[in-house]
């Protein structure tokens, strides 16, 4: 992603000359973005397995503090970045959207792991949401199950690149009277209502899953329970057979 264009009228020669004297000429955009990109505060918000890798990223070995993002805030009001780390179930999805709505602008979302991108290994579950991007806009998708801590750092760097490219004049979160809130889905009799937010996500016309992997293997409904009693009888120790009568010892009787 390109940096915000440098619109300053000062020519490069003069800039270099000034830099030698300790004067830096830059644009408001670049200065502002430099500040924002270097202090992204993530929300302390773990959903499942990926949260442990998120904690590992914050710990000494990977040390997310090198990127200025070490301050995990428990409150969404103080956070800039929501790392959706883990499976979003249908029971949890309304809360995730509510937390996103409560965050202050500008706000960013990283979906960490296959589950929060598209359901991951649990995509066939009846209670698993197939991707949080159905309800909230996502900036960086981070695949993996779970992604390694290095991957999370890479995702953060990608987000920093995105922040570098934003301009105050055009960024939507800097406009007056903006209220970027998304409707919170409700838990209905057949899953969430609405099924997705058409503002941020539209279903594809062709089913990519079917296209790439073919028809899913259908097992068919099993209706007959195995008769375990028969097995139990067969496996049970048989009543002790009468001890084989010792061959009559000749000579006594």
């Amino acid at each position: 992603m390109a940096l915000a264009p440098n619109t300053s009228q000062v020519d490069d020669g003069l800039k270099n000359e000034l830099a030698k004297k300790g004067i830096v000429v830059t644009t408001m955009n670049q200065l502002y973005n430099w500040g924002r990109r270097s202090s992204i505060w993530p929300m302390q918000f773990g959903l499942a397995c990926c949260a442990i890798e998120m904690i590992a990223t914050a710990c000494a070995r990977y040390d997310i503090a090198r990127f200025g993002a070490e301050l995990f805030r428990p409150s969404p009001r103080q956070a800039d970045l929501m790392i959706v780390a883990g499976t979003v179930t249908k029971k949890m999805a309304p809360q995730v959207v509510r937390l996103y709505n409560q965050m202050a602008e500008p706000k960013y979302v990283i979906t960490m792991g296959a589950c929060s991108i598209a359901g991951g290994p649990f995509i066939d579950g009846y209670n698993v949401l197939r991707g949080i991007d159905r309800y909230i806009p996502v900036d960086v998708h981070l695949p993996g199950c779970p992604p390694r801590p290095e991957a999370l750092l890479y995702g953060l760097m990608e987000l920093q690149k995105k922040i570098d490219g934003q301009q105050i004049e055009t960024a939507e979160w800097y406009q007056q009277g903006l209220k970027r809130e998304y409707p919170i889905p409700e838990f209905g009799p057949h899953g969430l209502i609405p099924k997705f937010n058409p503002e941020v996500w539209q279903p594809r016309e062709n089913d990519l899953r079917k296209e790439r992997y073919g028809q899913p293997i259908m097992i068919g409904k099993k209706s007959k329970a195995p008769n375990l009693d028969v097995v139990a009888v067969a496996a049970a120790p048989r009543p002790a057979a009468p001890a084989p009568t010792p061959p009559p010892t000749p000579g006594i009787a």
Partner: peptide
């Protein structure tokens, strides 16, 4: 129930070895 991800239902629909990673 906020993380109920249907482990048992998914395992009943796949082979024995396939639910090892689950």
């Amino acid at each position: 129930g906020y993380l109920h991800r249907n482990h048992e239902q998914i395992a009943e629909n796949m082979s024995y070895a396939a639910s090892m990673p689950y």
